[in-house]
Design a protein around this nucleic acid. Sequence first.
RNA 1: GGCGCUAUCGUCUAAGGGUUAGGACAGGGCCCUCUCAAGGCUCAAAUCGGGGUUCGAAUCCCCGUAGCGCUACCA
Length: 479
Amino acid sequence: MNRVRFAPSPTGYLHLGGARTYVFNWLFARSTGGRMILRIDDTDADRNTEQSLRSILEGLRWLEMPWDEQHFQSERRDRHVRAADALLSSGAAYRDFTPEDESTQNRKDAQPWLCNPEMRALSKRDSDRRAASGERFTVRFRVPRDHPGGVAFKDLVYRKQFRRYSDIEDFALLRSSGMPTYHLASTVDDAELEITHVIRGQDHLTNTFKHLLLLDALGVSRPRFGHLPLLLGPDGSKLSKRRHGALVSVPNYRDLGFLPRGFVNYLALLGWSPKNNREYLEPADLVSAFRIEHVLRTNAIVQFSDKPGSAQCDPKAVWLNGQHLRKMPLDALLPYVERALRDEGWWDSEYAGARGKWFAEAIGALRTRLNLLTDFTVRCRAYFRDEFECAPKALKNLNRPGARELLRPLADRLERLPEFSERSVEREVRSLAAERGVKAGLLINGSRAALTGQPVGPSAFLVFAILGRERVVQRLRAA
RNA sequence: GGCGCUAUCGUCUAAGGGUUAGGACAGGGCCCUCUCAAGGCUCAAAUCGGGGUUCGAAUCCCCGUAGCGCUACCA
């Protein structure tokens, strides 16, 4: 059975890149009957924060793509250290006593740093003696750099990969604090958790050679690797919390009013394509269409902007979300709208009870012209609240010559109407307009303004029907 | 600097030797219409540059250029 993992480090919130990696892993697991493992890579104690961990879990849960297992890397430290010890005694690794500040100096040099030959050549006796005397050291992997060959593997996405031993530096396994590094911890855990497919960002493509070296030295079997193209910001640089801020965080998209499925659909199309021109894909469609071999090799730019007034996110994401908002089963949509209204303090328990049918019908009518969940609160106030402002353009419709005077007579007629429905109301409105010799549009637009305070919205007759006779009559008179 | 990855409309992408280089978003126009959407139709918009290979190249090869990644006791 396939086992894949997503291994975020809790040093910031979950951003689009991480979420996309999670989504691809999950899709791969589900489409092949495998298991999804969440592993929190918290080996860098200094930079980890509780808040970051919470936000990652929250963001991941919001995607509605549950994982099957969860592990904390920090709880597995013993195994990492044991692996380092084993490599040390087999000679595959060695102690490097170079002081930290001196070794960081090396990377400033024009020449690439590969190893410190002096430390590499240290005899076992000297090494043991210096370690026993309490001298600080890091443990490094001894890359067989004198051999002419190299490491090769076949990436699921980037195909054949090869790197000469002589181009790989002697990377650290254990820090001088005794803490394992990412390379060691990640590799040991992948092996012990029996990960079969490592699917991660392309920024790890060149790290994979090190991981393979480690895996082989540890004598464990290699998982398969698949690297994903990177997500770039509009400025062309790799998406990061540092540069691009909260704008690219998953919670931001939730707050913008995205449905999990709309967001996931958008993410899935960044660096992957079903190859048949389909764009709108429901979660189940994604699972059945997903093929790791169809992942692209080119980085994708995520469109967004922090300029006030302009769209904060890719308009295509908004469009896709609108597709889901309209096409998903109404029953499935209702809970999301409920939460949006609750957040606004507009939720009425009657919506779920006596007026449940009304609520469903209203949402069903409203959703045809909305894209985001937040549109229900920012654009539909008049359907849920009795106090609302009249927009300037709506006021203009109301003030057209002859419009306002007709509202009261209309209210009177509607009050007496035997049956109050979309069709019967339409008949009344049109006949009143005809009798007074005005265009129906005048009355229709005026009514919409009086009833909703908006110049735009659903068909006016539908508005009448949604609001119901009582509120309609009252609002027409008030205008 | 070294090593590696990548290169199709503004953006996401299809076409992996033969197509008028297709679709989607965004933009323009038209239809529908009580408004705004939705929906339908339509217009504009791309193969980074240069060399090969081939009857034929977006597609294969080489060179250049550009972008990105790695080059940490970060992950």
